[in-house]
Nucleic acid binder design. Structure first.
Length: 278
DNA sequence: ACGCCCGCCTGTAAGC
DNA sequence: TGCTTACAGGCGGGCG
């Protein structure tokens, strides 16, 4: 599942590979990938635009265009961006959008489960953010700079830590994998109520989130057994080899050797060490 | 406002 | 072997 480290890996790859390239034409298959606006409008706004940079906010990719607009990409569960050398390269199954570039390459949006989406937006306001993203909380790396920022986000609320950390309105960028990993690194249970954390525990959690995300970015993100996350060139990440609890039910906790447990919670899973996490 | 649950999807794997 | 069922989970929407 692409979360902040996977999206950041893609952002860096995109910035290096397609920065300065011009979009020649856009082809969209199916009705779900472009659903916020008419496909013809999106295609017309992209055609002829040059890529001036690539930003990221939470799990959203922002492809900045010289038209002063932004192509927003969200991969959701199974979306991929793949760069092809040319139109002759066979398209993977579930290719829903193809952006032809002026040097002949193609940027392809592939998404079996069709949860992902593309849209073009005109950023507005002080932060030059697309209005569709106005509800996002502080980016888990970019804006959550100090423990105090996390303290404000958690705000002494009664909600459970994992519920808050994966709520993109509270903190943007964490999903199930990195919430579980960061909570383990902080020694905190997924179901701790935020309003029971001490100042020290908030600081520990803040440090754990940053360290976990930065280590995952250095490893090129996580590719799970389903192989759904790969980079622009189709290469897998390596951070899954360093997961301490996520997907490791019954295996030894690297910290204390107790078996990792899996809890069913809010219709989702949470992996945690019952001995190390309080 | 908060805390839930559901619907959206398809590929994979487990179970009978 | 072949079918059914469960599961993966981000996010928007809806409900109490």
């Amino acid at each position: 599942m692409p979360e902040l480290p996977e999206v950041e890996t893609l952002r860096r790859g995109l910035a290096a590979a397609v920065g300065g390239a011009r979009i020649v034409s856009v082809e969209v298959q199916g009705a779900r990938t472009v659903r916020r606006q008419p496909v013809e409008g999106l295609a017309a706004r992209l055609a002829g635009a040059r890529v001036d940079g690539v930003h990221r906010r939470g799990k959203y990719l922002l492809v900045l265009l010289d038209t002063a607009e932004v192509l927003v990409v969200h991969l959701r569960m199974s979306g991929q961006l793949r760069l092809a050398g040319g139109p002759a390269e066979p398209r993977p199954p579930h290719t829903h959008a193809v952006l032809a570039l002026d040097d002949g390459r193609e940027l392809r949006f592939v998404d079996p489960r069709t949860f992902g989406e593309l849209f073009v937006s005109a950023p507005a306001g002080r932060r030059r953010l697309p209005s569709e993203l106005a509800g996002l909380g502080p980016d888990a790396l970019g804006e959550l700079r100090t423990p105090a920022h996390l303290g404000v986000a958690l705000g002494g609320r009664r909600r459970r830590l994992k519920d808050l950390l994966t709520d993109q309105r509270v903190v943007a960028g964490l999903g199930s994998i990195y919430a579980d990993e960061a909570l383990h690194a902080a020694g905190l249970r997924f179901d701790r109520r935020a309003d029971t954390l001490s100042v020290d525990e908030v600081a520990t959690l803040h440090r754990a989130i940053r360290r976990t995300l930065l280590a995952a970015i250095r490893a090129g993100g996580s590719t799970l057994g389903d192989g759904q996350y790969v980079d622009l060139a189709g290469r897998a990440g390596r951070y899954q080899q360093r997961h301490r609890v996520y997907g490791r039910e019954g295996l030894a906790c690297p910290g204390c050797r107790a078996p990792v447990e899996r809890a069913r919670w809010s219709g989702r899973s949470a992996f945690f060490c019952p001995a190390c996490q309080r």
